[in-house]
């Protein structure tokens, strides 16, 4: 007899579990070697507590009432619960604090897109280590962890969440227009951005900068010609890049247009790409103000990898197939 389970969830059977466990065990050994201790937190949290963070897209999607009528949510990421843990359980500990986790998180889905409601995330949080050194450490751990799993062709996109807002401020973009422009960028809609700018009445030079800067991506050479208006973010990116060991730096694609759709990021943000998958495997960034919202003002940085996506990418690389891979090979053949 077949008993259904909710769409976007699944049972994981021994063959797959064995492979997933091998990946998480590898990740854990790298995280631990770098001094990150594993934590568990409850899957259910008080809505009122998680609401302290600005989650934007990653807003919790599932709510239940407990026996006393309090609203509980299923966590949608691990960064916010760990911020809560640090404020409540490590209120007077000397930073930096290093945590790692392997945990299921819960997201809402759009129908018929094959999106998961329940996803296994593996990640770290480095609390109390400011930019640029903290960011460089997180990127280093990320690369060492991915290298250890055997993933070969991945790249890290590195940008700064404060860059575009700073650019808009220094170019005197009217306050009321700024959210529209930023939304276009978050939605990856350069046509919408161009149209909004064309109607903005801004000077031609300012429009040109606001359109071209977020499309700059590549090696450290793209920082050289960056406009003075984006100086502090660009300087920050350069500092991080200079701190990276060679093998990590070679993986990095600097991307002045990278924005992640989670409200709590304040500085450097990054995403992991692999040609075997059409979507990022994971990502992270600096959230220097989130801990303050929970009562302990500490700069922080972290990342989360989608374990299932990493698994798909590894399998794709192994087979020499996958989203962008198969075609690169056929392209090379002709």
């Amino acid at each position: 007899m077949i008993h259904p389970i909710p769409s976007g969830t699944r049972d994981v059977l021994p063959d797959e579990t064995r492979e997933v466990r091998a990946i998480t065990a590898t990740l854990l050994s790298v995280f631990e070697r770098h001094g990150y201790g594993e934590v568990y937190t409850p899957a259910l949290e008080y809505e009122s507590v998680l609401a302290r963070a600005d989650m934007a897209e990653a807003q919790p999607a599932y709510r239940v009432f407990d026996e006393s009528g309090a609203v509980l949510v299923l966590r949608s990421d691990m960064t916010v619960p760990i911020a809560r843990v640090v404020a409540s359980r490590y209120a007077s500990s000397e930073p930096p604090l290093r945590f790692c986790y392997f945990a299921h998180c819960y997201r809402g889905v759009r129908p018929q897109r094959g999106q998961p409601r329940e996803l296994l995330q593996a990640g770290i949080e480095l609390i109390g280590a400011p930019a640029p050194h903290g960011t460089a450490e997180a990127l280093t751990v990320l690369c060492h962890a991915l290298d250890a799993t055997g993933l070969k062709d991945y790249r890290i996109g590195l940008g700064d969440a404060s860059l575009f807002p700073a650019l808009m401020a220094s170019l005197r973009v009217p306050e009321e227009l700024r959210p529209t422009l930023l939304d276009s960028l978050v939605l990856r809609d350069f046509v919408g951005l161009e149209q909004a700018l064309a109607e903005s009445g801004l000077a031609g030079e300012a429009i040109e900068l606001l359109l071209s800067v977020p499309q700059r991506r590549g090696g450290p050479e793209i920082l050289a010609g960056a406009p003075a208006e984006a100086d502090s973010a660009v300087t920050g990116l350069r500092q991080v890049h200079e701190l990276l060991e060679r093998a990590v730096a070679d993986r990095v694609i600097l991307d002045l247009g990278l924005v992640r759709n989670i409200g709590y990021y304040t500085g450097a943000v990054f995403e992991v790409y692999d040609p075997a998958l059409g979507a990022p495997i994971g990502g992270g960034g600096r959230y220097d103000e989130l801990l303050g919202r929970f009562g302990r003002q500490l700069p922080a940085v972290g990342f989360a990898l989608g374990v299932d996506r990493l698994h798909i990418a590894l399998a794709g690389e192994e087979r020499g197939t996958g989203a962008l891979l198969a075609r690169e090979m056929s392209g090379g053949r002709t």
Binding site: D183, R188, F190
Partner: peptide, 13 residues
């Protein structure tokens, strides 16, 4: 408004 649907870049009209 921030739920953009398809995860693709819209590059050119």
């Amino acid at each position: 408004p921030l739920d953009g649907g398809r995860e693709v870049y819209e590059l050119l009209d």
